[in-house]
Design a protein around this nucleic acid. Sequence first.
DNA 1: CCCAGTATTTAATTAAATTACAAATAGGAA
DNA 2: TTCCTATTTGTAATTTAATTAAATACTGGG
Lengths: 280, 280
Amino acid sequence: MTILTHLKKSLPSLSKAEFRIAEAILIDPEAAVNITTARLARLAEVSDPMISRFCHTLGCSSFPDFKVQLAKSLASNTFFISEAVSPGDDASLYIEKRINANQAALEYLRGKLQPEVIEQAVQLLSQSKRIEIFGMGGSAAIAHDAQHKLFRLGIPTVAYEDHLMQRMSAAAANEGTTVLLFSFTGRTQSMIEVARIAKESKASLIAITSPNSPLAAVADVTITSGDELEDTTLYVPMTTRIIILTIIDILVTGMALAQGPEIDVRLKRIKHSLDATKVN
Amino acid sequence: MTILTHLKKSLPSLSKAEFRIAEAILIDPEAAVNITTARLARLAEVSDPMISRFCHTLGCSSFPDFKVQLAKSLASNTFFISEAVSPGDDASLYIEKRINANQAALEYLRGKLQPEVIEQAVQLLSQSKRIEIFGMGGSAAIAHDAQHKLFRLGIPTVAYEDHLMQRMSAAAANEGTTVLLFSFTGRTQSMIEVARIAKESKASLIAITSPNSPLAAVADVTITSGDELEDTTLYVPMTTRIIILTIIDILVTGMALAQGPEIDVRLKRIKHSLDATKVN
DNA sequence: CCCAGTATTTAATTAAATTACAAATAGGAA
DNA sequence: TTCCTATTTGTAATTTAATTAAATACTGGG
């Protein structure tokens, strides 16, 4: 736990003077990292030595040590600020900005993903006899990517980006089938239709889409596609792509873990099946 | 830029004594945040005042200030420790681990990407009459994803995952063509052949692949695919996918910025072309 | 209202960092 | 090479910061 959260948590157990010190720090933690005992004491209207004691109470060895730890906690908080690119940015700048944006997107996902939902999805997928993956437009590549990851786990898996193929596949599904749908908005008419057909076929439905969308309403399990995060700038809505890939990553990880160690052999064999196509 | 990277970058411009101080800090930066001038001076075998001077050289107002900034940079670095999943991990744990791993991958990319190389690639792509994207196996989905992003910028763009199509496309290429190759290892025989054919056709070649691979040797511009990062665990080599997507993100961002504001209109029109397919 | 215990302050001390100045070293011109 | 200048580094002194120790002021229980 970082010193800042520690400080906030121990607020109730602090003495009067210590509490005043804590308050003074919390008003502007950024400024506190460069303050001296004397100035902080004056701010909090306590005596200098109280500052030392306050630090010891929090488990720091000295006031400078406290400042260092405070600096650390501030750094980890402010790390995920993402800023939009703007005309005139040079390469090194927009590289930084885009990497930040993608890291921030993952941080967002960390807060949004519900472990129970993932567990449910992993269980559904693991128990499936077949997995059919549907994605159109920008989600088509994602669907194929997911297929590429999932078939390695030994469950028959197909990806369709063609709406007609999706309809036929959905119609041919049965209880043992899990349909995995990628739809960013969850409002694409044809995608919703396909979902309904699959449902009529008694297939299980996992949708990576916007919660509160019509598609989400049909699905058995909904995982957020991060649509609230969509850049307002028109440039590149790639951050959501990163989110969805990471969701796939997590699902596949969960499935691999559920299968146990025998999965390693299969993955090794798949990997080595490509050896003959490589030079050197 | 964080003080630690700043320190590393200014190493060459430091004086002899300052350099020794820098070395002493870099041996164990964690320890440096709690050291005193006197002890650090003894470690670096310089006099005490040199420490103060060293800090001013780096743009810090004092040695304590330097320590605080160092603490901040360390915090942002240690934030991205990625840990392998292991059997028995529950959902909330492997979710955390995978998100951390992907954030760490992006952090790795931040250190590895060279702005000049990106600039070069962006320029090549922007000047192209046509862009042909090739990817096989796990890179096929990436190729299609890149195609989906790039065609929006108004340059004729095609993606091929079929080796025969790639050969024909490469043979049909000319000076105005840029070929974008995705190959994780850079050692797939057929990929290298296609690259050579494209080169013979006088096309420009951008490879997102392993540096020091045979494929990289043929390419005009090589961007790392992050192959050094490949998980030793067999589970999911998805982190590299994230890296490659972010590279695409960055390239597209660069191209969009280069095109200027008129790009907005195009992107808006593409977006609204889908309106009729949505419900609500 | 007094006493014990805790919390807080004042004053003194110690530790840490910086400044001012002096010495040394390196680079360039005669 | 030799001398001069500019830069770098070290020594000693000083200032600033932080902590300790002792004294005082609270606070709640009898």
